[in-house]
Design a protein around this nucleic acid. Structure first.
Lengths: 168, 168
DNA sequence: TAGAACTCGGATAAAGACTGTCCGAGATCA
DNA sequence: TGATCTCGGACAGTCTTTATCCGAGTTCTA
């Protein structure tokens, strides 16, 4: 691992990237897509990607179908799925900053009855995370698909649809 | 570990909380405060807190003084130190989301020469992190100290100053 | 000026999380 | 009814985080 990567500590699971790309891909298919197909398209370990897709399934973002024509498909239109939902499904929906209430410890401990409100530090950290969540809440899978398509001058999504149809 | 903590994945190092509280405490002292004293006040493991204080020292937020009257002190007025600086010093200054360029892999790989711009997904994630950072950049250590003092009806910071002076 | 005590700093182990993989249960189609 | 394909949860390896210790340097005191 490079020295530059070492500086990255508040890290999101790598699976977040795979899950977002998978959702964009699924938005281009009307039929279920097997996990192995998604893994091949994205160049990721098949079994590990399947694990993350299971998390999306538990979160109600995708639906799984078993059997010969099975696979994963979105449960809702892509315009109704926010990036925040996907990130939280993979990476957990709890706050990144956890206040352990150290103000209630030590020689100057504050009595519990005066700690109804969260600590001022916890409030500031929570406000920052709210800003982060709001930014992701405003972006939908449909938005991401449209932007990726625009970056490729309108060829990327069509190519995905073709590939999915051709390899089934 | 409780089941609730398991849902928290995009986590910040626990030391972020200690570092922020330590900076607030240091803002109330004109003389250096030893790491062991800070650990006692906050009820944290002394050796581990010292490790985080070293990170603050490397980041130029605090200055260390060795010897009998040594300890840590802020290098600047608390109003000139943002919460973001402290968080980045402890938790790393890199982005939480790392794009591994999976668009350049697989059967539909995009040629490298057409990937000058970051992926649309990476752009969305970066925008969210910028919003998070901006929120923390606007809060200074002096702001946090003032809010904590207000929460205690103006008694907390005075108590800290008294305790620091009495135990030296 | 020499000694002693106190401080920081980096190097050193243990625990937990993420990464990666496998095989069994269930469902669909022929 | 059988065979094939799929998902789903259970099973190790590696890495980061947590926690701790002792040595190097500095300051005060005698």
């Amino acid at each position: 691992m490079s020295e530059l990567d070492r500086l990255v500590i508040m890290k999101l699971s790598n699976g977040v990237e795979w899950a977002l790309h998978s959702c964009v891909t699924l938005s281009q298919s009307r039929e279920p897509v097997p996990a192995a197909r998604l893994a091949e398209l994205h160049g990721t370990p098949p079994a590990y990607l399947a694990k993350h897709l299971q998390a999306l399934s538990r979160a109600g973002i995708v639906r799984s179908r078993a059997g010969q024509v099975g696979g994963y498909e979105l449960t809702r239109p892509a315009a109704q799925i926010s990036a925040l939902e996907v990130v939280r499904a993979i990476d957990g929906d709890g706050p990144a900053y956890r206040c352990t209430e150290i103000r209630q410890r030590g020689p100057l401990a504050v009595p519990a009855e005066r700690c109804e409100r969260p600590c001022a530090i916890a409030r500031a950290m929570a406000a920052a995370e709210d800003a982060w969540a709001d930014a992701l809440r405003r972006v939908t899978i449909a938005d991401l698909a449209a932007r990726i398509d625009a970056d490729s001058e309108g060829t990327a999504m069509a190519a995905v649809s073709r590939w999915l149809a051709a390899t089934r």
